[in-house]
Design a binder for these strands. Structure first.
Lengths: 209, 209
DNA sequence: ATTATCTATAGATCTATAGATAATGC
DNA sequence: ATTATCTATAGATCTATAGATAATGC
């Protein structure tokens, strides 16, 4: 990932590296203190770059927030795609997605904190995963696998479980098996009976690749 | 509520009124702009009071945030208590609680926004309603009304649904019947079968008194 | 010669306090 | 006489930019 710089010149590659350092540093500082409380100076210091360098890359704090969120969501979305690639059963796909998203709190707690502390990250999160969810849930419905009365309310419920579950994991109030429990809840609300939901939610999960 | 001042002197009552004006103003400004972006000057201006008055009542922004949250939660908790006072069936109590909490987005959108924008409001929310929830859910379990495997995960799931449902209502992406749908989801996860959950979640709700 | 980074700083906030003013208590 | 509020401001940030320095490209 770090070596995949597209710039042709050495200077261009260095600039690209510094940009990525700034994005990572901004994510880390904002994860610790919240987006508003993070200062440009703290971000450049964390990135070990001069203060003014920030403005060679971003016009404002808002601009770098967008990039932190976009790059993190792209990474999570990509790994989720690889993880569910060969799967046929929509229920299995959904359970995998819920567990994978909750696992972000373990794999990348800095990004997880950032998402919880970024204002309207929830909105962008919804937008980022809506197409995928609509496709999978739509298929499950067509095949008679899911029984859903109000897809909008259900999407809100599942997103809420994932976000609040992530928060609980980060602050340490969650049970160790929370990923599986929440995945099972989601399946039950999709119309899968409890016994099967329980089993599907506990099936072994492939490593992230 | 405004006439219930406890101070003995007129000056004391005026001070009390101004304190309440500051709390209300802080809630409103923070609901609009977020907690960090709200300035003391904007709060005192919204309250139509001199800038320095703020420091006669609160030592810092953090202090007034605590009071905004505490006073709002007390109000919501009180109305919820009155609403569920005579109820026997734990399932009915739970459905009422979920719907009542979601109704805050309609009744008091300013406070609802404040909760969503206040850092770790979720933690204080949990703490504020945990006793009540444990009591009601515990009874439902004992009576065989509820079937629950992991109460912690379930509490996180239901809180997440309520918070994300509130956000969706505020930004206008929710369906009109979301309160009833989420209440039914909560009941189903508590072990109530779908038909009864659906019916309980739609039962008429007493006015707030 | 060009391009990026770094240092220094002007200008714009914002907080917290000090001292003056106004209102209430006795 | 006491107590609360109000006005004015010092001091502490923080942002955004200008100009100097360092590194790369040719």
């Amino acid at each position: 990932m770090a070596g995949a710089s597209k710039a042709a010149t050495r200077g261009g590659r260095r600039k690209q590296r510094n940009r990525e350092r700034l994005v990572a540093a901004a994510g880390a500082v904002m994860a610790r203190k919240g987006v508003d409380a993070a200062t440009i100076a703290e971000i450049t210091e964390e990135a070990d770059l001069g203060f003014g360098t920030f403005y060679n890359h971003f016009a404002s704090k808002e601009a770098i927030v967008d990039e932190v969120l976009a790059s993190g969501l792209e990474s999570v979305g990509g790994s989720l795609d690889r993880l569910t690639e060969g799967m046929e059963d929509p229920a299995r796909i959904l359970a995998t997605a819920v567990r994978h998203l909750l696992a972000v709190a373990d794999r990348d707690p800095v990004f997880a904190w950032f998402v919880l502390r970024a204002p309207n990250a929830s909105a962008q999160l919804t937008q980022h995963f809506l197409h995928r969810a609509e496709r999978d849930v739509g298929r499950g419905r067509k095949e008679g696998r899911f029984v859903i009365h109000d897809p909008t309310s259900l999407a809100i419920a599942i997103l809420g479980m994932i976000l609040e579950g992530t928060r609980a994991k980060l602050v340490g109030t969650a049970t160790s098996s929370i990923d599986e429990h929440l995945a099972a809840y989601a399946l039950r609300l999709l119309g899968i009976d409890e016994a099967e939901a329980h089993e599907l939610a506990r099936a072994p999960l492939a490593p992230i690749g």
